[in-house]
């Protein structure tokens, strides 16, 4: 089975790009779709209704949504196998920009919203810099020059990625993404123990992670980083 992991900032058009890409795949493939979100989502219902493919949602609730994705990837793969799928799309919530949800044996797709401006590629971190394919979305809203600058900034953080200009409203460009899914996406190993994340999650386990709500700095323990850059471990 092929695994496609799609990330991107909220509102960048991930679901729209995925739907149009699936439309290009459903004739020749059995696809399944998993949406990971934080508190609520209806994307899986939209996908199921529009395309009639097995679709499911996972809500991370109190857990970090990217960690939740990594932890549940094996379950997702098993579910898609049970559904008889040969391609599984996992769409992530993509929020704090510090994790990359891609594993080694997947096609990592980042949907980048060009309206976030030319500084955004440097800011969004590993889900862009470790992607295989970057879909530059909403390009119709800006000028050619701004698209050029934006794409240049993408290649500065991810020199080897493939770039597709997509339009989530009309679906243009998504046929090219479908083609890359068919040609470039590796098969996921049967033993999930052989599958690794491309990028380590940032190191930070602190008392806030386990429920501290007070802000006074002397009450905090764990791996802590100060605004001036000083980092320390405080604890036992």
């Amino acid at each position: 089975m092929k695994l496609v992991i799609v990330s991107g900032t909220p509102g960048s058009g991930k679901t729209a790009v995925v739907i149009h890409t699936l439309e290009n795949l459903v004739d020749d493939h059995d696809v399944a779709y998993l949406k990971v979100d934080c508190l609520d989502t209806e994307d899986h219902e939209i996908v199921e209704e529009r395309l009639g493919v097995p679709a499911k949602a996972g809500l991370a609730k109190d857990m970090c949504p990217d960690h939740f994705t990594a932890y549940n990837l094996e379950r997702a793969v098993r579910w898609a196998e049970e559904e008889g799928a040969d391609v599984l799309f996992v769409e992530t919530a993509g929020l704090c920009l510090r994790c990359s949800p891609y594993v080694d044996a997947c096609l990592g797709v980042c949907v980048a919203d060009v309206t976030l401006g030319p500084k955004s590629p440097a800011k969004v971190g590993p889900f862009l810099s470790t992607a295989d394919v970057v879909c530059v979305n909403k390009g119709d809203l800006v000028s050619q020059a701004e698209r050029d600058v934006f794409i240049k900034k993408i290649t500065e953080v991810n020199p080897d990625c493939k770039v597709i200009e997509t339009n989530g409203l009309t679906g243009t460009g998504c046929e090219l993404l479908a083609e890359l899914v068919e040609k470039e996406c590796p098969e996921i190993p049967t033993d999930m123990r052989d599958v690794r994340l491309r990028e380590k999650a940032p190191l930070c386990v602190c008392t806030l992670c386990v429920g501290e709500t007070r802000v006074a700095s002397d009450l905090h323990r764990g791996v802590l980083r100060r605004i001036d850059g000083f980092m320390e471990y405080r604890g036992e």
């Binding site: 309206t115 401006g117 030319p118 119709d140 809203l141 800006v142 000028s143 050619q144 701004e146």
Partner: peptide, 13 residues
Amino acid sequence: VAHVTQTMGFLAD
């Protein structure tokens, strides 16, 4: 290919 499209706004500040 360069494409000069119909709708064209600038975000550039």
